[in-house]
Design a protein around this nucleic acid. Structure first.
Lengths: 198, 198
DNA sequence: GAAATGACCGGATTGTTATTTTGGTCATTT
DNA sequence: AAATGACCAAAATAACAATCCGGTCATTTC
């Protein structure tokens, strides 16, 4: 059996997927060419089109895999013994840290800022939506357990993510950057406890 | 005394300012030309440069005036008899409604989205900072009066604006739009009361 | 002679055309 | 039957010409 040429179809597919993922992360969506991916994957260009209908579908599949990874990070971080608030903070911290360290997300963010590439923007939005949906699930559970006040889980999850991002990434020039411990304390303060005097 | 030609220098300055304000609001920063402003103001181009060092300074002066208008709207809305939370909501609603109805802000936002014009972006940021600073002042007072829990007024004002915007303008595609009453109720819920069960 | 002006300048922007690149196909090869 | 890469039309880019615009300053106006 010739190991060089006799590879199963699943191997080729995986090879394409991995190569493309690396290329999208390194060069972004539009600067990644199908020719280049084919060459780097050691595969004819036509072969890619037997697995993926077009460049967009190839990209979407890679985003889907990243979302699965983020979910895995969240599941790994989740500790059922801890109260909801602690899990929420741990997960936000871990998931967003992973996201920000991941080459693909970093590159896509830059591409959106710089060129406004619609596909790159769509990918990032899909990631954001999936994070909100994941948190919303746990908010729903927390409400059922009486750990969180009654509210719309989806909207609450959305507000939580926005607040967390307001404290960390965004608006870096409107307030001085906060370290991890400060972010944690402030998030608890603003999001969970509320500003009204008790 | 010839009313057509013998105008005082302050009149000419005001004329330029008003014409330029209308032009920036109608066409945005970069599509407004100094030639066009001079012509529409019935003034030689060189005259503009006796009042303003350059286009940027002219623009900044107009933004400064808009900020003063916003502050006036806020002051007019403020009712010292009302508790802090009510005033905050009324002011946010009034100021942001005024802002969104104001041609200049609308046009600058579009220009930033479309072309990323740095000057337009700078103007919007100045407006946002001034809103946050204004709210921060009142948050400071409310803390002193014991109406709001101890916190950094600037950061709290920033978080309040971000939350309000998250509920209204931004992320329109991540949750269905809310009407004014819902926004009010949700803002009270998320920002003031907090999510923790009491 | 102080204030106002608009012709003028160089750099930036825009419009136009020529050239190259790229996503996707399909006849041919393996 | 699976894989391939030469090929194509459309899209992106480069090259160049023409135009526009912010800012200046010698001249005019009052």
């Amino acid at each position: 059996m010739d190991l060089t040429t006799d590879r199963k179809s699943t191997d080729r597919r995986k090879q394409v997927l991995e190569t493309a993922a690396r290329s999208f992360a390194a060069f972004g969506y539009k600067a990644t060419t199908m020719d280049q991916v084919a060459k780097a994957a050691g595969v004819g260009k036509g072969t890619i089109y037997t697995f993926f209908a077009n460049k967009e579908e190839l990209f979407e599949q890679i985003v889907r895999e990243l979302i699965a990874e983020l979910k895995a990070v969240a599941e790994r971080t989740l500790d059922p013994a801890l109260p909801f608030a602690d899990n929420l903070l741990r997960i936000l911290q871990q998931v967003l840290a992973y996201r920000d360290r991941h080459g693909l997300v970093v590159k896509l963010s830059q591409e959106v800022r710089e060129f406004g590439t619609p596909m790159a923007n769509g990918g990032l939005e899909a990631i954001e939506r999936s994070i909100i949906a994941y948190i919303a699930g746990h908010v729903g559970e927390a409400i059922a357990k009486g750990e969180v006040r009654q509210s719309d889980p989806a909207l609450t999850a959305y507000m939580m993510l926005k607040m967390y991002l307001a404290l960390t990434a965004e608006g870096g020039h409107l307030h001085e950057p906060l370290d991890a411990e400060q972010v944690l304390a402030h998030f608890r303060f603003y999001c969970l406890e509320g500003l009204a005097v008790k």
